[in-house]
Design a protein around this nucleic acid. Structure first.
Lengths: 129, 129, 129, 129
DNA sequence: GTGGTCTAGACCACG
DNA sequence: GTGGTCTAGACCACC
């Protein structure tokens, strides 16, 4: 599992970490039961702070994506355990809305926006190695 | 023009302000040529500091959405002037991608995601009063 | 003499006014001895404040470009009276230097910069109607 | 890196700061990858407020000249990333034009103006130590 | 009256 | 330690 961190990005490292792992699960490169590297391991691999990895793991745990075992470290949960919640759906809409407003303002209509999304889905499909 | 600020939100006030104004333009409630309240006015209306409003206005100006007029204050630009740029499109994809990964992970497939977007577009259409 | 003011520009109106008049003299559209409109006249023509025009005229006078007569109003001086001063030359260099630094940084070399200047001179030649 | 601020100047401090840094990069005294002092550091060194430095850095970041790194502070970008844009070229002409008009008016012809520019380029070459 | 600049001091998120 | 955000209050240029 390759984790690429962009140290110049404005999105915090721990969030990038979380995103990458989420991405790994979504694309099946990380299957349920798989273990993530230990906090120390990953931190030293990426050259980042322990706390940063910890924060990402804690977040993933809190969201139900992984389970933290004392010995086995971080383990990917079964996808069944984190189905769509109304709460999440609402969050998604709230995040999407301002993006769509801006897209509209920049001359992107519903159809074009749909194509952009579709392209991303396609790209993901291709990555499902 | 109603501007509602959520002081509890984790997104900075000046960004909320920006979003609201972008929204106002996208829904035609703010037409090209319309004036926005003065920095001081809006700040006092919202009970926030004038610098915060200033920052939002400066950003909108920099993005080409408004023009800071000599004494008429802030004026909405014509939508023709801020068409889609490749740069923006790339940004949009980069923002969208992690959201889509997470949606997938939570059991939302492409079609469902599309419906969510579509619903937002519809909602916007309705607000275009 | 057409004076075009850009109310959206960030350069103050009185400076735009000054620039335009300087331009008029440089391109010979305003010859020595010619009169400028009265302060009141010009202000009302352009829809701007009296003080603004006044400020521009005062500046031009102070620089020796025009003479303010009580009755005849503002009159263009002979070009002989405002020859290059060392002081001006120094000012010019100081203004030019940062622009040249930035040009360099943006990949414009001396020759290209020279062409840009040359083009402007050519354009001016053409306007000398 | 010597940064000299002229507190008497009418050009804002944050712009002077920006100019100086641009100058530093153009003359290679600041190479890609080099770090700038932290906002607080520079502010205290110069005896100015940290917000003023911040504004300059934010501007340089927005222009693509530097990257605000997570903890390494501000880092100079590679010059490849900020090549000439049409937009910039237009801006340059607009800035240059009035200066050239005034130069003409003060008896400086195209050739002499060219020499002035050339001298500045030479001077820069000399500073490239 | 407008926005632009500068200062000062505070809190927070990130690492 | 870093930068990002917000507040507060001041002065200035422009109109």
């Amino acid at each position: 599992m390759m984790l690429g961190i962009d140290f110049e990005s404005s999105t915090p490292i721990y969030l990038q970490l979380r995103e990458q792992i989420v991405k790994g699960i979504a694309t099946k490169r990380l299957a349920p039961g798989d273990s993530l590297p230990s906090v120390r391991q990953l931190a030293s691999d990426l050259g980042i702070n322990l706390h940063t990895v910890n924060k990402a793991y804690a977040m993933l745990k809190q969201e139900g994506f992984i389970t933290l075992h004392r010995q086995k470290g971080a383990v990917i949960n079964s996808p069944d355990s984190f189905k769509t919640s109304d709460e999440y759906l609402k969050q998604l809409c709230d995040d999407l809305e301002p993006m769509i407003f801006e897209a509209l303002l920049r001359g992107i209509n519903e159809q074009e926006f749909s194509i952009v999304c579709s392209d991303i889905f396609k790209k993901i499909g291709g990555e499902k190695s």
